[in-house]
């Protein structure tokens, strides 16, 4: 599946603002892994995700997806292998286009955009069923502009879009951080459902320790551009916040800094 080999990323090299965001990180995800990534601000978790997505190229090391080397592949080209949901609900959808048009674009991820009609009748029926599965009543608003929907609804649609063309990997970048707690729970439950049903290999970055523990089968904690902890299997299933903090303190020799992550 996804493999990072000795990946390093430095921002503003050679200046006073030089920052080693990711330092010699190696990581291998197995097929069907649902990995949650946690760490305080500046730990490198979002940088790692964006390197996988292709926003930047690493300074050294390589990134492989199913043995395909995507290290130098431009973002839009490697998009065919990955589904992505962003922190800002506005980022994942085209707000001036309607729900079905957004889904139709996602259904063509990684394919050539031809002069065939942009959406077929058969597709519409599929989308209606999939939207009904979200349980948000969106199946009756397929021609509404996405811009009229709430943040939670938009994240739900973005999740659906990310999973439409079964991606090799699903990248979730703090995708519930901008939502109120109740909506965040709805979207997280939906995430679990979609990941389970489509058997998706998933990398979920979060600020929230509770979420990181409650979801997925593997937890990675990052600090100063390194992977500090990699907890899987039974150990992950029985993990508590107290244990996690203790492990963090032991491995890093410092106190965990972010109060936000404890909530």
């Amino acid at each position: 599946m996804l493999e990072l080999r000795n990946v390093t990323k430095v921002f503003n090299p050679g200046t006073v603002n030089e920052k080693v965001a990711i330092n010699d990180v190696s990581l291998k995800l197995n097929d069907g892994d649902f990995v949650t990534v946690i760490g305080s601000n500046g730990a490198g978790k979002s940088t790692m995700l964006n390197l996988v997505a292709g926003l930047w190229k690493p300074d050294s090391g390589s990134i492989l997806l199913d043995d395909i080397d995507v290290t130098k592949m431009p973002e839009y080209k490697r998009a065919k292998y990955m589904g992505r949901v962003f922190q800002d609900p506005h980022d994942g959808t085209a707000s001036d286009m309607n729900i079905e048009e957004n889904l139709a674009i996602a259904a063509r991820r990684g394919k050539k955009h031809t002069l065939k009609w942009g959406i077929t009748r058969k597709e519409r029926e599929t989308y209606r069923e999939l939207l009904a599965g979200l349980g948000l009543g969106l199946e009756n608003r397929m021609t509404s502009k996405v811009g009229l929907l709430s943040g939670g609804q938009r994240q739900a649609i973005t999740l659906l879009m990310a999973s439409l063309e079964c991606p090799k990997i699903l990248l979730l970048d703090e995708h519930t951080a901008a939502l109120d707690p109740k909506t965040a729970k709805v979207v997280l439950d939906l995430t679990d459902k979609i990941v389970r049903e489509n058997h998706l290999t998933t990398l979920m970055v979060t600020h929230n320790m509770k979420d990181a523990i409650a979801h997925g089968n593997r937890l990675i904690m990052m600090n100063n551009g390194h992977i500090l902890l990699d907890i899987k299997g039974e150990e992950k299933m029985n993990l508590t916040i107290e244990e996690l903090l203790e492990k963090f303190n032991q491995s890093s020799g410092e106190e965990f800094a972010s109060d936000k992550a404890l909530l």
Partner: peptide
């Protein structure tokens, strides 16, 4: 034209660059 796959991709490009790139569109 703007109803085709290509036309829709162009509309998406003008609407949201981040989303378009994530959806494999050559913006």
């Amino acid at each position: 034209f703007f109803g085709t796959e290509l036309g829709s991709a162009i509309r998406a490009t003008g609407n949201n660059l981040k989303m378009s790139r994530a959806q494999g569109i050559n913006v």
